[in-house]
Design a protein around this nucleic acid. Structure first.
Lengths: 142, 142
DNA sequence: TCATAAATCACCCGAAAGAATGAAAGAAAT
DNA sequence: ATTTCTTTCATTCTTTCGGGTGATTTATGA
C-alpha cells in the first residue's frame, strides 16, 4: 500500500524531471536555429544533460532499492525493545545494555528475552541478524 | 597500492566506453548529413545513449564505493579461523560450529577464542561486527 | 474506571560461552 | 632437520546467556 504509493511518487518525479529536460532541449533546439554551425554544440549539450540525468537516475534507483524495506517495529516490538535491540546489535553485553539504559540487569534480560520470542529466535546473534535483515535497526555503515 | 591500481583500471574502462560513445556519435553525425530533417532523431539518439551511459556509470560508481574494502584475512587469521568466523556470523552456536566443521566443541572454542584475540574483541557479537565492517567474511545480502 | 500493555525488577537454574593452560600431530618453510 | 604455524583436543574455572515464573508500577485507551 504505502510502499506502492511511495514508489509511484518517485516515478512521477523521474517523469517530471525527464519532461523538464525535454522542454529544455526544445528551447535549446529552437534557440540555436543557426544549426549548421552549432550542431556539435547541440549534441554536446544533449549529451551532457542526459549523462547527468542518467547518473542521477541510476544512483537514485540504486539507493531506493537498497533501502525501502524499513519495517518499523510492527512485529510487536515496543520502543524500549527496539532500543535494546539497537544496543545488542552494537555488540554490548547484557550488563552493558542495562547500564546504558539505566535499568537493572534483570530488566535488560527481560527485554532481551521478549525480543527473542517476538523475533522468534533463540540467540542474540540470530536476533541481530534478523534485525538487520528486516531493517528493524539503524544500518551500521554506508 | 593494489587499491589504487584497481581504481585506475576502472577509470580507464569508463574513459574507454566514453570514447567509444563519442566515436559512435561521430559516425551517426556524419551518416545523417541530411540533418535539417533528422536533427530531432540525432538529438534523441544522443540523449538515449548518454542516458544509458549515465545510468551505467552511476550505478557502477556506487557499487564500487560500497565494496572495495575487502581486507583478506591478513590480520593473522588462519583459513580455518575464517571458516569459523563465517559460521559465527551466521548465528551458529559453538556446538553447531563444531558439528559443521566435524571437530570437537573444544576445538571450536579454541578457534573462537583465537579469533577474539586476533580481532581484539571480547564477545562473539563484536567479532561478527568487526568481521562485517572489515569485510573479512562474505556479505549476508545484496 | 477498568482493562491492557509497557516497563521495571527479582530469583532460580541449567546451558552456553569465554579465559587460561597444556599438549600433540601434521604441514610448511628455511 | 628443525623450527614455526596450524589444527586438533582436553581440562578447569568463571562469567554470561537464556528460560521460566511472578510481581509492581505507570501509561494508555476504551
Amino acid at each position: 500500500m504505502r510502499k506502492l504509493k511511495k514508489l509511484n511518487r518517485i516515478y512521477w518525479i523521474y517523469g517530471g524531471v525527464m519532461g523538464l529536460l525535454m522542454i529544455l532541449l526544445e528551447v535549446i533546439h529552437y534557440r540555436t536555429m543557426v544549426r549548421d554551425i552549432e550542431i556539435e554544440v547541440y549534441g554536446a549539450i544533449i549529451g551532457i544533460l542526459f549523462l547527468a540525468f542518467g547518473i542521477w537516475l541510476g544512483t537514485s534507483l540504486i539507493k531506493k532499492n537498497s533501502q525501502e524495506k524499513y519495517d518499523p517495529f510492527k512485529l510487536g516490538l515496543s520502543k524500549r525493545e527496539v532500543e535494546v535491540l539497537e544496543l545488542l546489535a552494537q555488540g554490548f553485553s547484557n550488563q552493558e545494555v542495562a547500564d546504558k539504559l539505566f535499568v537493572s540487569l534483570n530488566t535488560a534480560k527481560t527485554h532481551i528475552s521478549n525480543i527473542y520470542s517476538k523475533l522468534n529466535v533463540k540467540r542474540r546473534t540470530q536476533a541481530i541478524q534478523k534485525a538487520r535483515d528486516m531493517a528493524l535497526i539503524h544500518p551500521s555503515k554506508e
